[in-house]
């Protein structure tokens, strides 16, 4: 556990001494702020976060692979992985530590975006229950995204490739839900169940369903497990 926290802390430090963290935070807040402002300018605006949550989850999906692409790919290409893996740490501790570092940065981004519901509170009367469920959704969903990104970073030593693999996987989990509307067979049923979009929807409506939470957390566990296996495999190549 200590090793995991040590690795996660180093990862967070490294995010904040590079421009990456600031660029991503700026980008995220800028886009969401833009959408927020557009919404405010419309007639008869409601003080509701619901449409904003949909934008936020999609921007998270696009930015998650940017945050995670370097986690393991950079270590492998620079060779620092050799220094790390010859310390008394387990492969799983390395994967989970790095993943948690990325999750921590994601949480920091979410904290910055709290300005939007706060602004609604100042000029309107938002439903704080809905805000809470939306943020719980963003958190568990983000955890799953970071795990997918960690996995993508573990299978290659090229950061661009890691970013592409991460984006492709996440877009798959986003778009697969569209199959669900074509007809009704067991395929479309499965497609709907593994869709990020479908599983996230309830959170924006103020519903925290254990099924959805479990879906995202299982997704995280599965991809982290695959990341650990990928690290183990790289040792043998």
């Amino acid at each position: 556990m200590r090793n995991i926290l040590t690795i996660a802390a180093r990862e967070i430090q490294s995010y904040f001494v590079s421009p990456l963290a600031y660029v991503v935070i700026f980008f995220f807040v800028f886009i969401i702020g833009f959408i927020f402002t557009l919404g405010m300018l419309g007639p008869q605006t409601e003080a509701t976060m619901q449409p904003l949550f949909h934008s936020m989850i999609f921007v998270s999906l696009m930015l998650a692979p940017v945050l995670t692409m370097g986690l393991l790919a950079q270590e492998t290409s620079s060779g620092s992985i050799e220094m790390l893996m010859t310390k008394p740490v387990r492969d799983a501790e390395v994967a989970v530590g790095k993943f948690l570092g990325a999750v921590a940065l994601y949480v920091a981004i979410l904290v910055v975006t709290l300005e939007f519901p706060i602004m609604y509170e100042i000029w309107g009367n938002p439903d704080w229950g809905l805000v809470l469920s939306g943020y719980i959704g963003l958190l568990v969903c983000g955890i799953a995204f970071m795990a997918v990104g960690t996995f993508a970073s573990s299978v290659t030593d090229n950061q661009i490739a890691a970013w592409l693999i991460g984006t492709a996987l996440l877009l798959f989990f986003w778009l697969v839900g569209w199959l669900g509307y074509s007809s009704t067979t067991w395929v479309t049923d499965v497609a709907k169940r593994i869709s990020v979009y479908e599983n996230f929807g309830d959170f924006t409506r103020g519903i925290v369903d254990g099924k959805n939470v479990l879906f995202f957390l299982s997704m995280a566990v599965i991809f982290l497990f695959m990341a650990v296996r990928a690290i183990e495999n790289r040792r043998t190549v």
Partner: peptide, 18 residues
């Protein structure tokens, strides 16, 4: 075993930002 070892690899790569 690794607890007993101090290792300097052939191409030492440190974390440059630290």
């Amino acid at each position: 075993a690794r607890r007993h070892i101090g290792y300097v690899p052939e191409h030492p790569a440190l974390y440059p930002e630290m």
